[in-house]
Design a protein around this nucleic acid. Structure first.
Length: 281
DNA sequence: GCCCAGGCACTCA
DNA sequence: TGAGTGCCTGGG
């Protein structure tokens, strides 16, 4: 990967495995807008525009410092996706097919708190609605970035939030779960050194955090690429491809993914998720 | 009006 | 330990 400063933007050239549309639309994050290779995201307290053409990707406004300290890690640019895709493609044909279709996916490294709350909101919900609820909460409790956008609020910014506030943000029955997360004394940053299973157990003490939400949190904000978040789509496609369409438990799927994909289970999950949503149905 | 969506908690056997 | 059921909300 190579990049250079051009005016108030950073231009990335000589990169691989990067398709901004695939990265944002594959369901791992919710604070973005745009289409056709032109997107805006809000992450880590900043608004960033990304414009992708055939030979380069432009990030703006963005300084070298911001790019190196925030966005390289956020977009997982130090991970060798060519190698990952090569290994997974060799492991089976359908995964190879999925990777061909969405080889530009990268797993983001998101803010832990925002990610956890976002996936609590995601349960039994649709993506447009999830995005709306998160935006409502940001507008009500976050810090102003400009006339249009607010950051996602930190836990301390949410300390005074009430059930009624969150209902007004359309969080519905998940309001009480968000309140429980706010009240819990769990410091997410302090969990970073624990084992994946220990983090998971800790997260699941929060009401509204089960297997799936905890796994998404681990994969998308704790960098634990060995987890295989299993929602209805992943359950469906995994059963279809690897279990001869037989109905199996989440635990069986987790064990299967661990054995077959090992430390790359999270990447497989993303490729298969995209495959399931866009090809099947 | 009915159904359901990227789960989870709660109840009851 | 596992199956069954209800849940805010809004779009089809």
């Amino acid at each position: 990967m190579k990049y250079k400063k051009v005016g108030n933007s950073i231009e990335m050239i000589e990169y691989d495995s990067f398709d901004i549309g695939q990265i944002l639309e594959c369901g791992q994050c919710f604070r973005f807008s745009g289409s056709d290779n032109n997107y805006s995201i809000i992450a880590h307290g900043k608004l960033l525009n990304i414009s992708q053409t055939n030979d380069k990707i432009i990030f703006y406004p963005c300084t070298i410092n911001e790019f190196e300290n925030i966005w390289i890690n956020y977009f997982d640019l130090n991970t060798d996706y060519l190698q990952i895709k090569k290994i997974l493609s060799h492991s089976d044909n359908i995964l190879a097919k999925a990777i061909k279709l969405c080889g530009g996916i990268r797993i983001l490294n998101q803010d832990k708190w925002e990610c956890l709350i976002s996936f609590i909101i995601s349960q039994n919900n649709r993506i447009p609605q999830i995005k709306k609820v998160i935006e409502n909460i940001s507008n009500m409790f976050g810090s102003k970035i400009n006339d249009q956008y607010y950051t996602f609020p930190t836990r301390s910014q949410l300390l005074n939030a009430t059930q009624e506030n969150l209902q007004n943000c359309k969080a519905g029955f998940r309001s009480k779960y968000i309140l429980d997360a706010i009240k819990s004394e769990i410091n997410l940053e302090n969990l970073s050194n624990l084992s994946t299973q220990d983090i998971k157990n800790t997260l699941m003490k929060i009401k509204g955090v089960g297997n799936k939400v905890a796994d998404c949190s681990l994969l998308f904000s704790f960098g634990r690429r060995e987890v295989y978040p299993t929602d209805v789509w992943i359950k469906r496609v995994t059963q279809e491809i690897y279990f001869n369409n037989k109905d199996v438990s989440i635990n069986q799927i987790h064990n299967f993914a661990k054995n077959k994909f090992g430390n790359l289970a999270g990447y497989s999950q993303q490729y298969l998720f995209h495959y399931a949503r866009n090809i099947k149905r």
